[in-house]
Design a protein around this nucleic acid. Structure first.
Length: 580
RNA sequence: GGCCCGGUAGCUCAGUGGAUUAGAGCACCAGUCUUCGGAACUGGGUGUCGGGGGUUCGAAUCCCUCCCGGGUCGCCA
């Protein structure tokens, strides 16, 4: 897709090329810093060196030689020392941007670069029979944002929740339930009870080896398809999926598939055999299957000496299944940093087996969350924070602010706003920065309602909507079509121009977010847009504009801003209230 | 010890080669205060861009080296 700023850049490049003074390969344009009064710059250093000139000389010569076409988006070209600066024509820009937003609406900012390509995203991936906690929030939220962004870029996106639904801990779960009874009820309460039983069983098993044997026996029975074991296991899976869905609904998460680890169980012997056949693995004296790729990566196992399988075995099977089932051009794993080595080994092994040659395999890694004392969060330490509790707390805090700021809203709307704003603040906290850093838990920052936060952006959206509501209520007649076409020319105030330029940047931000696997690029755009709106709001009254035409022009700008903000927030999985 | 991340303002973070002022938020101080909704706006910064070398006309950004924090290195996931 081609947006206004794309055309602007093309025109700039074409104008430079048309002088015949600079070879194509040396034309590199960059966005100047905000304090420079230009919209695109050509730094002439490299080109000048090649041509044997000094940079200011070349810039000056080019400025003389370039004459933008009359209908171009390029308004002016000036040499500033070694730089050749190009400025946008604000009137043509505003006409183009308003048209694009109005025409595309909720699709403004989308692209077709991914047409015909599929990307598989592995995210969230909580464990069955456990409550979701803050440790899952990062993968879930970042993964969903990437899902939304890639879909907006035109890709066919497949989201897969790689559930931890297999392994020997289920032997203990089942043994505990058989011994003490199935927890009543459903949802998170039942999950919490299972968790307690599990912890109790684990404690007692340390003292009494018989309990350990019992758990192992159930684990084996489960693998062999014993009806009782199978039934209890299925019950736990269903219970978990139902309980998690409530969290997902609150977070705006929609995952296409729930293939858990158990799904791949039947494929594991084939994977091990194939690795052996292809000589990327060998069986050692103890009977374990060892992968040695002969490069700098540490060796690892595909099969234990007791013939059991491992995480790696299942992940190889999973990857091969995804290649075969979805034919993706990319597979993204949104998984924590500690598994960095695991994925490097996995990708290297799969490639050594001759698969995924043209497929991009990416581990989107994120840092660990620590508590205030620098300790990792864990149930055992007793410092765990559960996702539902975190969201509830965020809701409560936002509710208190709504109560104070908008006491006249109906109670139901207050609740709805508190949910949108509270949950949004938690999500935004995880999306506004590069995910690689470790996070030290700070409750106040996580639930921040001001500054660079979701509520700030949502508030600016609500202000736009408020203006538009008032305008509609005042029933001002719309300008005639002929006049409407001339309106963009009226938007020449610096605050108006700054806002329009910011709106024009959304498509580029979305592309960059996809290319870098970085939702924070979109978050940053949202924040900058909200700030640009603030400046406009301060300097340019809409409803009290000097003339009806200017008022109409500004209304179009406000409507376009609201739409673009909604699109940006939507990519992050955030909603925006009409009032708050 | 090997490998992987990170180190930018008191705190949390953007910026990853170019324009004699390295940007935001939080916190703090002072203003806006009959407002198109104050969850807002304006002003206020003596920052060794972890240290030291190097490449370059130019380095937070690229290369080397060292320091600090976190992670990880075959029978858990």
């Amino acid at each position: 897709m081609e947006y206004a700023l794309d055309r602007f850049e093309q025109q700039v490049r074409a104008a430079i090329a048309a002088t015949g003074q600079v070879p194509d390969g040396l034309i590199e344009v960059t966005a100047p810093k905000p304090n420079i009064p230009a919209d695109l710059a050509f730094p002439t250093f490299k080109a000048a060196k090649q041509l044997g000139m000094n940079p200011p000389q070349l810039a000056g010569a080019l400025a003389q030689a370039i004459h933008p076409a009359a209908d171009s988006l390029v308004a002016s070209v000036v040499a500033a020392g070694p730089f050749l600066n190009f400025a946008l024509d604000p009137v043509r820009l505003s006409a183009a941007v308003l048209e694009e937003v109005e025409e595309l609406g909720p699709r403004y900012g989308s692209d077709d670069q991914g047409a015909g390509k599929t990307v598989v995203i592995d995210y969230s991936s909580p464990n069955v029979a456990k409550l979701m906690h803050v440790g899952h929030i990062r993968s879930t939220i970042i993964g969903q944002a990437l899902y939304n962004i890639f879909r907006f870029l035109g890709y066919n996106v497949v989201g897969d929740n790689h559930l931890g639904d297999w392994g020997k801990q289920f032997g203990m779960n089942i043994a505990a339930i058989v011994r003490w009874g199935k927890p009543a009820g459903d949802g998170e309460d039942a999950l919490a009870q299972i968790d307690k039983l599990y912890a109790q069983y684990a404690r007692m098993a340390k003292e009494d080896p018989a309990l350990d044997d019992e758990a192992r026996a159930w684990s084996l029975k489960l693998e062999q398809g014993d009806p009782t074991a199978r039934e209890l296991w299925q019950w736990m899976v269903d219970l978990t999926l139902t309980a998690n869905q409530h969290n997902y609904d609150r977070l705006g998460v929609h995952i296409d598939h729930n293939y858990g680890e158990s799904f791949y169980e039947p494929m594991l012997p084939g994977v091990i055999q194939e690795a052996l056949d292809k000589k990327v693995a060998y069986r050692d004296e103890g009977g374990a299957v060892v992968v040695d790729l002969g490069n700098s990566l540490p060796t690892f196992l595909l099969q234990r000496s007791d013939s059991g399988t491992l995480y790696h075995t299942r992940d190889v099977a999973t990857l091969l299944f995804r290649l075969n089932e979805f034919h993706p051009s990319q597979i993204l794993y949104v998984v924590g940093m500690p598994q960095e080595l695991h994925f490097r080994q996995l990708f290297a092994l799969v490639r050594a087996m001759g698969y995924a040659e043209d497929v991009e395999l990416e581990h989107i890694k994120f840092g660990t969350i620590f508590d205030q004392h620098g300790q990792p969060l864990s149930t055992r330490r007793g410092n765990m924070i559960y996702l539902a509790d975190l969201l509830n707390d965020a809701h409560q805090r936002a509710r208190a602010v709504v109560e104070q700021a908008s006491p006249d809203l109906p109670a139901a709307e207050k609740d709805a706003v508190a949910e949108i704003v509270g949950v949004g603040s938690v999500m935004y906290n995880d999306l506004y920065q590069d995910p690689r850093r470790n996070i030290t838990l700070d409750w106040d920052r996580m639930l921040a309602l001001e500054g660079n936060s979701a509520p700030y952006i949502q508030y600016m959206y609500a202000r736009c909507r408020s203006i538009l509501r008032k305008a509609a209520a005042e029933d001002i007649e719309l300008p005639a079509a002929a006049l409407n076409a001339q309106l963009p020319a009226l938007l020449t105030h610096p605050a108006e121009v700054a806002l329009l330029k910011q709106l024009a940047r959304l498509p580029g931000a979305v592309r960059e977010a996809g290319a870098r696997y970085a939702p924070f690029v979109v978050a940053d755009w949202c924040y900058e847009t909200a700030r640009a709106l603030s400046g406009f709001y301060r300097d340019c009254s809409v409803l009290k504009a000097e003339t009806p035409a200017l008022r109409a022009a500004r209304l179009r700008l406000v409507a376009a801003t609201a739409q673009a903000l909604l699109n940006g927030l939507g990519l992050l999985g955030l909603r925006a209230p009409e009032r708050m």
